[in-house]
Design a protein around this nucleic acid. Sequence first.
DNA 1: TTTAGCACTCAAACGCTAAGAGTGCTAACA
DNA 2: TGTTAGCACTCTTAGCGTTTGAGTGCTAAA
Lengths: 341, 341
Amino acid sequence: MELSERKQIILAAVVEQFIETGEPVGSKGLQAKLGISVSSATIRNEMSELAEMGYLEQPHTSAGRVPSQKGYRYYVDHLMNRREPDDYQRRQMEADISAGGADPQRLIEKAGEVLAQLTNCAAMSTMPKGEGIFIRRVEVVPVGGKTCMTLLLTSAGIIRSRVCRLDFELTASMLENFYNVVSSALIGRPVSEVGAVMLQTLAASLGSEALPLLPLIAAVAELARDADETDVMLEGQSNLLNHREYDGKVYELLEFLNKPQPLSHLISSSKNDLDVLIGKESLFRQLEDSSIILARYNIGLREGGAIGLIGPTRIDYARIIPSVEYLTGLLGKLLKKALEE
Amino acid sequence: MELSERKQIILAAVVEQFIETGEPVGSKGLQAKLGISVSSATIRNEMSELAEMGYLEQPHTSAGRVPSQKGYRYYVDHLMNRREPDDYQRRQMEADISAGGADPQRLIEKAGEVLAQLTNCAAMSTMPKGEGIFIRRVEVVPVGGKTCMTLLLTSAGIIRSRVCRLDFELTASMLENFYNVVSSALIGRPVSEVGAVMLQTLAASLGSEALPLLPLIAAVAELARDADETDVMLEGQSNLLNHREYDGKVYELLEFLNKPQPLSHLISSSKNDLDVLIGKESLFRQLEDSSIILARYNIGLREGGAIGLIGPTRIDYARIIPSVEYLTGLLGKLLKKALEE
DNA sequence: TTTAGCACTCAAACGCTAAGAGTGCTAACA
DNA sequence: TGTTAGCACTCTTAGCGTTTGAGTGCTAAA
């Protein structure tokens, strides 16, 4: 798929102009924009060919051209002139993220907020996930009578808790027994390993006392499963209302974003450091007018989670992609400091 | 402010008709709706008087009448014919709320979801708050090196956690010392009491070891403050997009709802079992086209939190108010079961 | 290969008219 | 005195033809 140099220049200009104004761009306007010494008719011919090749589209006969999905793709892959965030912006990001203190959950949430605000789009972020996350602590706190609360703390700083009801009152010795077994069996183990098999072993080593404590074991298992789930935090949804390309379609999109499964599927299905999904590339009908920029962060050498954003396909890729990349680095650095120092 | 019986009937009919259709209602339509044997001209006269008295408004000369804020108020206070949820709906609500298990946080969140879905509006809910909530447990978990994680668990089942960094490595004996002092000083105390004074006492009883542990103490204090804060969970924001009265104004409203302070202020400023704020009654400019229905739930005899909803002033008060009331009772019952059995 | 010129297309804006819903007033009526 | 029929008047909304203007595609000449 080779494009002549002039075609590349023109395609880039169309994409950038359209991103800037949101209006279809015509040959005359382009001629003015480009310093290039070539007539509008020539540009017209080139654009016509680009349209034939599928890089540009026409809303209707007498309108200008608009980049197609393929056009955006080519732009992002080959033409885009990255605009890195400057020193001031970097410092600003760091300050905003750190504002909530060193708590990991907070940091990640803040990163999403910053991204949303930076881009005027919806942003998402997930907690760290994967093999490197292990169980740091399990607690059972009686809260009166037959009820108790189970807590699970992971090495990523995730806390999960659940109320659990038993058929009897928990005695101190039972609790101790449970602690000993659970601690030796679970602590230090990767969260993702806590499955049905491990729980059977656990129940076995609890011996005769296993049966009554089963609800507790089940609760811990649920907590582990919960902690292992990628749950996606969403920020700045209302920003999407500002984009006129979504007029009348916002509701459908927001409904879609508020279901947890599709987003988390999207996130876990991409393993690259940075992914840009344009329009239908995401394979979700509800996102066919949207682009997604998704980046993973690492904590030290360990794999972390992801942050990303969702906006109209007409998005300022050249500015935003570098910012997202910078943010992942920053977030990884701050998380490492918070968790491992 | 006495209204003749006929005026009352007419006002109620106008309100109900407008709530149903969203169109300004005219004298002729009303005549058909009411079985009443009276001509449209008479109705016209009555409506004209109601308009003069401030209960109705006219969008423009040649349109029908629309209830004013005062009109809604009178309707809700005197005319409304409550429609209680039937058995099926009650069972449905109970099933939906309980679906997530017995965890208090979950229950409350679910109650919000149910409310949002039930009303096609945005719903909010808050955790229990007040004097009755005390500290159940404080934990410090070393997570490697000089970093540790502080946990605070309240009697309402709220968990707060934060990462805390020290200037040195925590030894077992220091930890034990800290535990002993903190446990005896804080556990069983109301969350709201943990202020600066108490912390000074605490620091004093830690003796010579106080200074290096100060960050820990501060962290616990922060957690307590955090747990005492009414933080508002919001559900079903996108439902608001379905109401045409918000066309073009949704963004402002959503922005407003996503700031935590105003909502929590709204909630804490009303202490009744049930509050209905219509239009400007809420005193927030951003809510002048909205109504708020806010209800408190109790856990047993103790005061709990609140659930509520935000929607256009044109809302089906007669159906929704009873549902909200039923929901608070239900939620209180389920929470009590989860926390105190 | 490039460019100027020109006819052609189509959406958006504009102005006008007609329709329809609803009011307010007046005068008659019970 | 309260109620009603009748009617003129108001104002919005929808529909329709026209105009405008941006932009294209084609052709012929440089």
